[in-house]
Design a protein around this nucleic acid. Structure first.
Lengths: 233, 233
DNA sequence: TGTATTTAGTTTGTCGACAAGATTTTAATA
DNA sequence: TATTAAAATCTTGTCGACAAACTAAATACA
């Protein structure tokens, strides 16, 4: 799909949203690399609209921490703060835990249905060996759980952390095991669904912590390996 | 200070920030009531600038959850979601705990100095019986602690929760005890400072939880009393 | 009198333009 | 040649204007 196809007959009020969604997607999928400058005029031409909706989208993305607005200078895609990644992991683990706990308490039948639907799509991506899809759909699965927990404050922070995690995972996570079934993540997700459905708060907390720790450890392992390689070279 | 005094000779690039700060302050101090519509043109005239920086400020405030942008309709000051306040209290309590714990771990001498400075100003407001000041300066004190904890994700959520709390407190918190010294909040803050300085994580966690629970209980008491009064009428 | 429809009046979303500030290029000097 | 100064170019921040969408007021109709 070329960008010029989108230019005509877009409804009023959707311009800024379209730019926001487009840029967000490109940032999270590393089409736009961390540190890369974003030129408003260039974007305006590419998406064939004026700078006003572009600007609004950039301001919103800055609120999400995805871009950094340098006053009177160019806007850049936010850098990933590698020296302080442990703070990211700490917050991510805590949000995994509290959202899953709250899901056990506050979910209803509709929530379970939504969660199971996300899990099914996630499993498809795993079977297909679609790494990028896995990363995004794993996010959607946990967001569905957080939504069942009903706490908008946790949901917002967790969404943001999972988004940031998408960038990190795409940099550091390569399929480090054979595409064998049953896949460990699928099994873990199933266990979490069962604990949520059983309203077993303590098991939810334990499973969420284990799940989070495993993901964190995997990223750290890859990062450590990557670091060693850099040193050897 | 009248608004017209601010119109001339403001530096380029500070317009949107000025509007943001002004509106934020007015919203948190209930000068602009929840649900009140915000007219862009009126604001533009009042702050004597064009609608563009006004709009940017509103988009940022919407990102903070302080205003709600209704597409093609007026922007309104966000309502306080009273039916779901328990989720607010839950998140607030958790953030009190984790930020204070992290402060115990990661603070340095400069952080302690900043925290003590905020506590001193807070104590002044307590002695002066300045309720509005107390609410804001109590926020600043805990933000200083969160900053010492170094986790930007917790800091952002906590700041947002404390801001939202400012609105709730201004609606529901009236000085329910005589201005006697030593004031319990001052004492509790001192105990928290001591535990942070001693790097005693467990005590920090306990004190933060007690502190949070006390504030939550106090608000809930006032709300319950308020509710009874409404029923009696 | 109450409801539906048209009309008039606001308010927002987007646009093109311009000037302040920053960046790059060119010229000047040691 | 290297360093500094000036000029030219580019990018952002702000502005005023206009049209789409919404709101209300006025009118028509049952």
């Amino acid at each position: 799909m070329t960008d010029t196809e989108d230019q005509q007959e877009r409804k009023r009020g959707t311009g800024a949203r379209f730019v926001y969604d487009t840029l967000r997607d490109e940032i999270l999928n590393l089409v736009l690399q961390p540190g890369e400058p974003i030129d408003e005029i260039g974007l305006a031409e590419r998406l064939s609209m004026s700078r006003t909706p572009i600007r609004e989208a950039l301001v919103r993305l800055a609120g999400d921490g995805l871009v950094t607005l340098l006053p009177n200078r160019s806007t850049v895609v936010s850098q990933i703060d590698f020296p302080n990644l442990h703070h990211f992991f700490d917050a991510l683990t805590l949000m995994y835990r509290v959202t899953t706990r709250l899901a056990a308490q506050f979910h209803d039948a509709g929530d379970l249905q939504a969660i199971r639907a996300r899990q099914a799509i996630f499993a498809e991506a795993v079977i297909a060996g679609d790494t990028a899809g896995m990363i995004q759909l794993n996010r959607d699965f946990h967001v569905a759980i957080a939504e069942a927990g009903r706490n908008p404050y946790y949901l917002q922070l967790f969404s943001r952390l999972l988004d940031e995690g998408r960038r990190i995972l795409r940099l550091y996570y390569y399929p480090s095991f054979e595409p064998a079934l049953p896949h460990p993540y699928i099994q873990e997700h199933e266990a979490i669904i069962a604990a949520v459905a059983a309203r077993d708060v303590d098991t939810c907390d334990r499973l969420a912590k284990e799940h989070a720790d495993k993901i964190v450890r995997q990223i750290q392992d890859v990062m450590a390996r990557d670091l060693r390689q850099n040193i050897e070279i």
